[in-house]
Amino acid sequence: MESIQDGFSAFVMGFARLFLISLFIWMFGLVVLLFREMFSGRELVLREYLQKVWRLLLASFEWVSYAGVIGGPVFLMFSEEKLTYVMLTVAAVIMSGVWLAVRKQTGGFMSSRVRK
């Protein structure tokens, strides 16, 4: 029973790690975005700025989930904590699958690059 509890705990911790790393990347991106907007020389339009912030939040979660699919097995090879990184990889695969399904429903990767 304790092994099931340890496995579930590691699984939840995998999602938590991905979530926290995404938030840290988003916070760093917010600082960069704010300085870009401040020194751009044009007037700050709040609606456009908030759209950029929202896109940055979604992109940070997406990037971290894709990177976790690659980074999890690499950390697994060099670490003694096998269960932690196996569950991190499983969480990253699940999140990547969700993001790929969202991309498929919204029109794929090309629609995010084309700005009208």
Results as ranks from 00 to 15, higher is better:
R55A: 06
L58M: 12
A59L: 14
G72I: 04
G71D: 03
F61D: 04
G68Y: 11
K52S: 03
W54L: 09
W54E: 04
L58Y: 10
Q51N: 12
Y66T: 00
R47D: 11
V64G: 03
E48S: 14
V64D: 02
A59I: 04
R55K: 09
E48T: 15
Q51D: 15
V69G: 01
K52E: 05
S60M: 10
F61I: 05
P73A: 05
S65P: 09
M77N: 05
F78R: 02
R47G: 08
F78S: 04
K52H: 13
K52Y: 09
F75Y: 14
I70F: 14
E62S: 13
F78T: 03
Y49C: 03
Y66S: 01
L56V: 01
F78A: 01
G72M: 07
R47A: 10
G68I: 07
R47I: 06
A67D: 00
M77E: 08
G72H: 09
Y49F: 14
W63Q: 05
Y49R: 03
G68N: 06
Y49E: 08
A67P: 01
L57M: 13
A67E: 00
K52M: 05
Y49N: 04
M77V: 14
A59Y: 15
A59G: 02
V69E: 00
V53L: 11
I70C: 07
F61C: 09
A67V: 11
I70M: 10
S65W: 14
R55M: 06
Q51P: 04
E62P: 00
V64W: 03
V69T: 01
Y49A: 11
V74Y: 13
V74F: 15
L76A: 12
L57R: 01
F78P: 01
I70E: 10
V53W: 07
R47S: 10
K52W: 09
E48N: 14
G68V: 07
F75E: 04
F75R: 02
V69H: 02
Y49W: 12
Y66V: 05
L57D: 12
V69S: 00
F75S: 01
V69C: 05
W54H: 08
V64E: 02
A59C: 06
F78W: 06
L56A: 05
L56M: 11
V74C: 06
M77Y: 13
S60V: 02
